[in-house]
Structure formats: structure tokens, C-alpha cells
């Protein structure tokens, strides 16, 4: 240990810039990262205020308008879908389930996963082995499969699918948190705090958790992307968000037939929106992961 330490620079880096402001964060995200954050931000804003925007009508059907293209009728810049509903309105309304669904997954999977991961890291021994085995079994259930089974048992819907996916994603979060917390817990300052008499709870919550939070945030962002993809897929299958509600997955399903009949825009537009948001979330998540692991 005495020979391989990185050179201790005693001629110290004199003063740390006290204001480690958000600007340094933005710089580390880079232009691409910021762009992705902006795209995600727009989706979130639309999810919140979209349904209150004036002039949108996602649900009233008007069969004569079916497959009418962009700008052919006033007030409909993107045209109409298979049932003559305004495409733009439906895309905007669809932001809500697209954001809320993954958020439910994130909240459930994160709160359980972080708790289990922290306990496993702290207790080691048989409890760790037991939790590990339990997580291994959950690994045996692909998220989509679990969601399909949940839909069969409880009926389709966003909640059943979101809860099933939370359970399926739980092991990933728990394992990441466990490994990060175990690594942090092996640091000498943690041993020093234990010798001081600081409780395990306080060390976990006040020291270990804040220090590994960048990794948790990054993994959460990546998880959000996965959850979004899986949830729209389940809605596409007809087992998630139920028609006639505007959901991007439901929209692809409803308009798939148009692709073969020469009216690809409605299905394609919904697909494009999904891909755009997922790319933004994934790239942002990877950026955050790089930052949290000190690679940027």
C-alpha cells in the first residue's frame, strides 16, 4: 500500500472554487446532454399542461376525416388518424401516460431497490445471500412477460403493467445500489464513523446514500427509458393503456393498418415521438452515468 498511492500533492490545490454552481454541471452534460434534457423537459411539460392547451381534441371521432393528411383541414397541422381523430391532439395528450407510466415504475422500483440494495450492502452475510437469491429469481422474469401475466390476472391497464415492470426492474436497481454502497462502505471514513459510534442508519442515509446518489440518478434515468419502451409496447399489445385513450403505443396499434393501406403518417408519427423521447432519455442517462463515474 505504501508504494502505489497516487502522488499526494502537498503543494495543495489551494482553494476549491466554493461555488460549484450548476454551470459546471451543464458544462459536463455538454451540448448534446443539454439538448436531450430539453427534449425530455418538453415531454414533461406537455405531460403536465398538454390536456389544458386550447383547441386540442384527442377523442371525438369523425369517420369521414379518417386518414385525412396534414394541413388539409384548418386546425389540424398533422391530419387525422384511422378514426378521424386529430393526430396532433392525440400525440400531445399521449405525453401524459408516456411520462407518468415510467415515473410510477421508477418510484416503486427505486424506493424498493434502494432499500434492498442498502440493506444487502450493509448486512452482508446470510441476509445478503437471501436477497441475492430473491433478486436472481426476479431476473428470471423478463419485464414484458411479467406485465402480460399481470394483465391476464388483473386485467389490462397502466397500473398493472407499471407495477409488474417495477417488480421486474427491481433487481437491476437493487444490484447497482448494493455494489455502489458496498464500495462506498469499504471506505475508511465509514469505518471511522462506526468507531465514533455513529449509527448504521445515519451512516447509510447521511453519508453513503448522498455519495452514491449520482449513480442512482443515472441508473434511474436509464431505467426510465427502458420502462417507457416496455410500457408503450404493452399498450401496443392492447394490455396497457386502453383505447380510446391517447397513448403513443395505442396509437401505433390503431393506425398500423394504415401503413399497409398507404397512410403511414399516424402510426409513424407516434413511433417517431417515442423514439425521440427514448433517445433523449438514454443519451442523458449515459451522460449522467459517465459523470457519476468520473469519466467526464
Amino acid at each position: 500500500m505504501t508504494t502505489t498511492m497516487p502522488a499526494p500533492a502537498e503543494a495543495a490545490p489551494a482553494v476549491e472554487p466554493m461555488a460549484r454552481s450548476s454551470r459546471s454541471w451543464l458544462r459536463r452534460l455538454g451540448p448534446l446532454g443539454i439538448a436531450c434534457a430539453v427534449i425530455l423537459g418538453i415531454a414533461v411539460v406537455l405531460a403536465i399542461i398538454g390536456p389544458y392547451l386550447p383547441g386540442l381534441d384527442p377523442e371525438s371521432t369523425d369517420l369521414p376525416n379518417a386518414w385525412v393528411g396534414p394541413f388539409q383541414l384548418p386546425g389540424s397541422p398533422l391530419g387525422f388518424d384511422a378514426q378521424g381523430r386529430d393526430l396532433l391532439s392525440r400525440l400531445i395528450f399521449g405525453a401524459r401516460t408516456a411520462i407518468v407510466g415510467p415515473l410510477i415504475v421508477l418510484i416503486i422500483a427505486m424506493s424498493l431497490g434502494v432499500t434492498i440494495g442498502m440493506i444487502a450492502a450493509w448486512r452482508r452475510g446470510w441476509l445478503d445471500s437471501f436477497l441475492n437469491f430473491g433478486l436472481d429469481i426476479l431476473f428470471g422474469f423478463p419485464g414484458i412477460l411479467l406485465a402480460i401475466v399481470a394483465a391476464a390476472v388483473f386485467g389490462g391497464g397502466l397500473w398493472a403493467a407499471a407495477i409488474a415492470l417495477s417488480v421486474a426492474y427491481l433487481p437491476f436497481i437493487a444490484r447497482v445500489v448494493r455494489n455502489a454502497a458496498a464500495k462506498e462502505g469499504a471506505m475508511e471514513y465509514v469505518a471511522a464513523l462506526r468507531v465514533q459510534g455513529v449509527s448504521a442508519w445515519r451512516i447509510s442515509v447521511r453519508h453513503i446514500l448522498p455519495n452514491i446518489s449520482p449513480i442512482i440518478v443515472a441508473q434511474g434515468t436509464i431505467l426510465f427509458g427502458y420502462a417507457l419502451v416496455d410500457l408503450v409496447a404493452i399498450s401496443f399489445l392492447g394490455l396497457g393503456v386502453q383505447p380510446p385513450a391517447a397513448d403513443w403505443g395505442v396509437m401505433v396499434n390503431e393506425n398500423l393498418i394504415g401503413v399497409l393501406q398507404g397512410y403511414p403518417l399516424p402510426a409513424l408519427a407516434a413511433g417517431l415521438v417515442i423514439v425521440t423521447v427514448v433517445v433523449a432519455v438514454n443519451v442523458l442517462g449515459e451522460r449522467l452515468l459517465d459523470i457519476s463515474e468520473g469519466r467526464r
Binding site: 419502451v229 409496447a233 401505433v252 398500423l256 401503413v259 399497409l260 413511433g271 417515442i274 423514439v275 427514448v278
Partner: peptide
Amino acid sequence: AIPAFVGATLLLM
């Protein structure tokens, strides 16, 4: 970022 069913839509088109 392309979900399988979106890819299917593109390929079909």
C-alpha cells in the same frame, strides 16, 4: 431506442 413494434411499422412501410 427503437422499440420492436416501431421498427415493425417502419419495415412494413
